[in-house]
Structures are given as C-alpha cells and as structure tokens.
Amino acid sequence: MKVRVMRGREWARPVRPVRREVLGAAPEVEQGRPPLLFVPGFGHGAWAFAEHWLGHAASRGFPAYALSLRGHGDSGPAPEATLRAYAHDVTQVAAGLPRQAVLVGHGAGALVVAHALARYPARAAVLVAPVLGGWATFGAALRSNPVGTLPAVFGGPLRLHRRQLFSRELPEAEARRYADRLGRAGRRAQWQLLTGRAAEPAVGDPPVLVLGSPDDRVVPATALTRAARRYGSAPLLFPGMGHDMMLDARWREPVDAILDWLAKDPAPTGRP
C-alpha cells in the first residue's frame, strides 16, 4: 500500500481526549533499554499485564508500561469508540514515553498496534496471539464459542469463555477471577474487527515479532502464520497455552522470548 500524506478527514475531526490508565514498572537500574508499551486486547485492561509481565520486564532491565484502551480498565468511558480512537490512545501514550517505544499488542490489541504503527515509528513491535480481524477470525470464534460471539454481531458484548483464554494448567479459581474482570470493547470497534480496513504500512520499518500458541482457541494457528508472513517472518509458538498468554500458568516463557528477542537488538526491516 502507498504512503498516505493527506488525512484531511482526520485532521478535521481529531479524536476526543479521554482519561487514560497507564500502569508502569521501572527497572532498578536504568540500562538504556527501550521502553515497552503493552496494549491489551478487547475486554482486557492494563491490569492483565500488571499481573506478571510488567514486573518481569522491569526485572530484566526494560522500563515497561501498559495502557487501558478507552472504555476499558480505569480509562475513561467511551461506548462509541472506534479502532481509530484506540490507535490514537496507543500513539498518545507511546509519544509520551521518554524514548522510542516497543509496542506489544495482545489479541485485538495487536490490530490496534498494527494501526498505531502507521502513525508512530516504533522501535519494534510484538504481536502476541494477534487478532487481526476479518471474516476468518470471526468464523473461528463462532465455531469455538457461538454463544459468546453471536451477540457481538448485533452490537452486544463479545464474551470469551475462560476455557478459550486459559489452559487447564491455570487453577480454576484464578481463571474465574480473571474472566470476571473482563470488560467489553465499543460495538463500533467490534464491527470494525470484521469490516475494518487493513492497517496501513508501518512507518520507520520496525522489526516485528509474532508469537502465539497452536492451542489458542481464539486465534487459530493458520491465522498466526498469516499474521507473521505479513511481516516477513514465522510465528514463535508456545504449545499448551491459552489465548491470554500473559495470564496463563506459563506466562514467563513468552515474555522471556520477547525480551530475549529485544535484547538482541533486532535490525529494522527494509534497511539497506
């Protein structure tokens, strides 16, 4: 896709500001590592990363932040939010960080990150169990959880079952506790998962890592491969984990893989 310079419609109608929840964890000693910004998917808030990943990234020397998209967590309410507003939230927080950030999107948050990458030259991007939208994703969701998925078509909430999100290794009580904290995305944003336009090319050619689980019951393995291929790589797989890799019993493995990848300072794509 071609570079877009003119955005008259967007300039004419800026996204409304809203209170944004940002949680963070700073490493004890500043080591000059790029800050990470975790973007939760639909229904999740910054809390999902504050549980394990933020602290772990900080303990390995990466300043780590997580935001709640508008209408989620402790961010301001936004029932009519669109993907554009979500991407706006991400670029706002990213541009507010002291240095060029690494964007890490989970689930539909990965789609939000993909859109934000067209507006903000991230240091790198990581898509965790990415839900990049389209009818194939919808079909998969419908097959594994028809009762939770169908209402979303009519503007109702998209409900994910805890057995879609977590593996059986996670204790039942904990899974229930996490599932109870889930909220919902705006209905327009949910529709845009199906009908929305594909993300524009990323600015600044950031390196992109895709990871997921072949046993994810929200994102099928084929979708992972497709997502990774878009960024010219293959997905990193963690068998036996559910969709919510940051909350599942073995949360440590994927985040360590991300941090190892970043520690190697991946080169930007497309550079001579």
Binding site: P14, V15, H88, Q92, R119, Y120
Partner: peptide
C-alpha cells in the same frame, strides 16, 4: 508531526 502527536489534552 504526523508521526509524533502532541498530547491530546
């Protein structure tokens, strides 16, 4: 700048 927004508040 198109890729570095000013704070929206």
């Amino acid at each position: 700048f198109p890729d570095f927004p000013m704070p929206d508040d």
